[in-house]
């Protein structure tokens, strides 16, 4: 198991295996996202309260879940990189950050587009929206810290410390925002527990599609990182000659 793991983590192997596995992620991702889109836009029955506007749910909620999923992946990868000094783990954290930030942006923007017809304003200081916004700031801080440190090793390790501090803070931020919000206004979110299976499955298809999509994009970015980090290696010469 461990030798296998080390072998996988070695740049040449990883580069090759990632190249081979990308289609296994990207095609199912494409199919699942298309199925989710069709299901969400056409098949799912409309919500009796929100009508067709409800359909924004199918891009909003999966994006929001992805934004948090990617941040935790990033923090776990950063922790592994920091403890075992594994370059590949740092590369995972570095490659995840922009994808996660974009998903966070999507969740915020679609939330805003959903809020306008439902609540009458583009932005509500709703607990979920606010903690999503703070999550975006955490992503931006991570990216900014990485890009402003020249030395790649130090950039990796500094950003990893930041990601870990952020992930410890995330529940504190979330619950304090929920608490703050409950003092100011009643909960405006509808109850998602009441959803029927016909309404739910397109969202699940979308979510799994997004996860596979994340895997595919992550692997492409990781291949770029592996090349960027690998210096003067014979395999690189060989690989690039192809």
């Amino acid at each position: 198991m461990w030798t296998w793991f080390h072998k996988l983590a070695s740049p040449p192997h990883f580069y090759r295996i990632a190249g081979l596995t990308i289609p296994w992620f990207s095609w199912p991702a494409l199919i699942l996202i298309l199925v989710g889109l069709y299901g969400g836009l056409v098949l799912a029955p409309m919500d009796y309260q929100q009508g067709e506007g409800f359909r924004i749910f199918y891009v909003h909620v999966p994006s929001a879940i992805m934004s948090m999923f990617i941040y935790s992946t990033m923090a776990i990868a950063a922790g592994i990189g920091l403890i075992w000094r594994m370059k590949l783990a740092h590369a995972v954290a570095a490659a995840s950050a922009p994808i996660g930030a974009w998903f966070t942006f999507c969740a915020l923007a679609t939330g805003s587009l959903w809020g306008k017809p439902m609540w009458g304003t583009w932005w509500v200081w709703d607990a979920r929206l606010t903690s999503e916004l703070i999550l975006l700031f955490l992503y931006l801080g991570f990216i900014a810290l990485r890009s402003s440190i020249e030395d790649p090793q130090r950039a990796d390790r500094s950003a990893a410390v930041l990601a870990l501090v952020g992930v410890i803070n995330l529940p504190v931020i979330h619950y304090s925002v929920v608490w703050w919000n409950s003092l100011h206004q009643g909960s405006t979110m509808f109850n998602p527990g009441a959803m029927s299976i016909q309404m739910k499955w397109p969202a699940l298809a979308m979510l799994f599609g997004f996860m596979l999509y994340y895997g595919a994009v992550l692997f492409v970015r990781l291949r770029a990182e592996v090349i960027r980090r690998e210096r003067n290696a014979a395999w690189l010469r060989e690989e690039l000659a192809r």
């Binding site: 009508g51 924004i56 587009l113 959903w114 017809p117």
Partner: peptide, 13 residues
């Protein structure tokens, strides 16, 4: 159902 102005930008985005 009248939500086109919000729904399509969301999906497009």
């Amino acid at each position: 159902g009248g939500y086109a102005a919000f729904l399509w930008p969301a999906y497009g985005l």
